[in-house]
Simulated scan of single mutants.
Amino acid sequence: MARYTGPTTKIARKFGEAIYGADKSFEKRNFPPGQHGNNKRRGKKSEYAVQLQEKQKAKYTYGILERQFRGLFKKASASRGITGEVLLQLAESRLDNVVFRLGIAPTRNGARQLVSHRHITVNGEIVNVPSYSLRAGDVIAVREKSKSLEAIENSLANNSNVYEWLTWNGETLQGTFVTAPERLQIPENIKEQLIVELYSK
């Protein structure tokens, strides 16, 4: 399964945002990497460069590589609704993202690992495909044998996020994907229209 495994702080510094969550290293050096990183006199970026950076930010945020991301865009383009919003809804509907949102894992990378290692079930069946697309009403749960995993217990104990489009039962360790989120319910700072403009060229 292809995925990005390089340094995360460097990527966060590139975009000027902690896209992978709280990061002490990023807080200390929140300027672009490289020997000219702190130089305020960098030239103005072209329209294409701005659009490309926004697409790269979305890809790194959700942990999706180019081929998968392009596939999501094609699917969003063929769907009803605003293409950019549908694109983010599709990304949010991925199983690894929902496991992260529910607090079962502290990061999307951690969520992807839990799914791949068969710790997560969907509607009672084990699903080990992180990109699995959830539908309204799907029930996501921690597999019975995995409920005592320390990593999962610690993540849930430290999670305080609540999302209107997800429900969670702390006793049974299962949640429901109620519906795809509206754009206002997605907290990611992504200008999806720039991505649409880039792919539409």
Rank of each mutant, 00 (worst) to 15 (best):
Glu125Gly: 10
Leu114Ile: 12
Glu150Arg: 02
Val139Trp: 05
Glu197Lys: 15
Asn161Trp: 02
Asp96Thr: 08
Leu134Cys: 07
Gln185Ala: 11
Ile152Asn: 02
Leu156Arg: 12
Asn159Glu: 12
Ala105Gln: 02
Glu144Thr: 14
Glu188Val: 03
Val115Ser: 04
Val162Gln: 15
Trp168Val: 07
Thr167Gln: 00
Val142Gly: 02
Pro106Tyr: 00
Glu182Trp: 12
Thr176Ala: 14
Arg101His: 01
Ser155Gly: 01
Trp165Leu: 09
Leu198Thr: 06
Val127His: 08
Glu153Asp: 14
Val162Gly: 13
Ile195Ala: 01
Ser155Asp: 05
Ser148Leu: 10
Ala141Phe: 04
Glu197Phe: 09
Val122Tyr: 10
Glu150Gly: 08
Asn123Leu: 10
Ala180Tyr: 11
Lys145Glu: 12
Phe177Glu: 06
Arg101Tyr: 03
Ala136Ser: 12
Ile152Gln: 04
Lys147Ala: 14
Gln174Trp: 04
Ser155Pro: 02
Arg143Val: 09
Gly170Asn: 07
Ile120Ser: 08
Ile104Cys: 12
Val196Ser: 04
Leu198Val: 12
Pro187Arg: 04
Lys145Trp: 12
Leu156Val: 10
Gln174Arg: 07
Val196Asn: 02
Val196Cys: 06
Gly137Pro: 06
Asn154Leu: 13
Leu95Met: 01
Gln174Pro: 11
Arg183Thr: 11
Arg112Phe: 04
Leu194Cys: 11
Arg101Gly: 00
Thr179His: 05
Arg112Asn: 03
Val127Pro: 02
Ala151Cys: 15
Pro181Met: 01
Glu192Trp: 04
